[in-house]
């Protein structure tokens, strides 16, 4: 790991001002992607701004039709939150599928979303649940936030403060895990909202998380696995690697979408 200067702000304002005044700064959330990347010297920020002591980035609140989660909430906290389990059980279940118990005790929702790993789970949940990503500067719809592999709408020095998830009538996440890394080979999050169904896929796309309009249209008509008959995602948009080729991933998208719809429908 290259040397860096360490900063430990106690407010979002202080963190933003530190980032503005420091050259080559990175924010540290749970650190479970950034620290391994720094160990490999694939990242070597001159300044590391630790968000771990900022109380205003924590908390889970349910208000009317949405659940809002602070950016520094850990996966284990989301997975075991009574509010999340009651309002959006699919989201709690998704958080429980990230990494292993130790990783879930450190990794955060804000870190996962800001990183936008093409195999991460949260981006699919945000897209399917039509989440709003709130930063210290603005609110961004999930549809506009995720812009391709490891790329988001975040500007330099912009900090995610919380993520607001509208409560769907039914939802589920089906994940085909790489058994070694536990990242999604393919993960499909399906959510039924008052104005239609949203389907988001992670792990599969060559350009990161994406929605499947054909599936959304079919499921908005009939929220059953059979409604997906005959719908295939194009292989040329799929990722291909030693774990799974594009054809297999494209096939898995269909299988996981069915399983997600089945699980969501079973929840009633």
């Amino acid at each position: 790991m290259y040397a860096f200067e360490y900063h430990r702000p106690t407010s979002v304002k202080e963190a933003a001002s530190l980032a503005g005044g420091a050259e080559d700064a990175k924010f540290l959330a749970g650190g479970h992607t950034l620290l391994p990347t720094m160990k490999l010297r694939l990242a070597g920020p001159a300044n590391l701004i630790d968000l771990g002591q900022i109380a205003e980035l924590r908390g889970i609140e349910r208000s009317g039709s949405a659940v809002t989660i602070g950016a520094m909430m850990k996966h284990a906290e989301v997975a075991t939150s009574a509010e999340v389990k009651e309002a959006i059980p699919a989201l709690a279940e998704m958080a429980e599928l990230i990494g292993d118990p130790h990783v879930r005790n450190r990794g955060t929702i804000g870190g996962s979303i800001a990183n936008n790993d093409p195999s991460a789970d949260y981006p699919a949940a945000c897209l399917a649940l039509n989440a709003t990503i709130v930063t210290n500067q603005r609110k961004v719809a999930a549809d506009d936030f995720f812009q391709g592999i490891f790329t988001t709408a975040l500007e330099e020095g912009e900090i995610i403060t919380r993520v607001s998830f509208p409560i769907p009538s039914q939802a589920a996440y089906a994940k085909f895990r790489n058994p070694a890394s536990r990242y999604a080979l393919v993960g499909v999050f399906v959510a039924k909202h008052a104005d239609g169904v949203r389907v988001a896929v992670t792990g599969a796309g060559s350009n990161g998380v994406f929605r499947v309009p054909e599936m959304e249209k079919a499921l908005s008509g009939s929220f059953t696995p059979d409604a997906l008959n005959g719908i295939a995602v194009p292989q040329d948009r799929m990722n291909s690697d030693i774990h799974a080729d594009a054809a297999y991933r494209a096939h898995l998208v269909g299988v996981m979408a069915r399983r997600a719809v089945q699980a969501a429908a079973a929840r009633g």
Partner: peptide, 8 residues
């Protein structure tokens, strides 16, 4: 429980 190789 945390993995102390991935915490500063």
């Amino acid at each position: 429980a945390v993995k102390s190789c991935t915490v500063l």
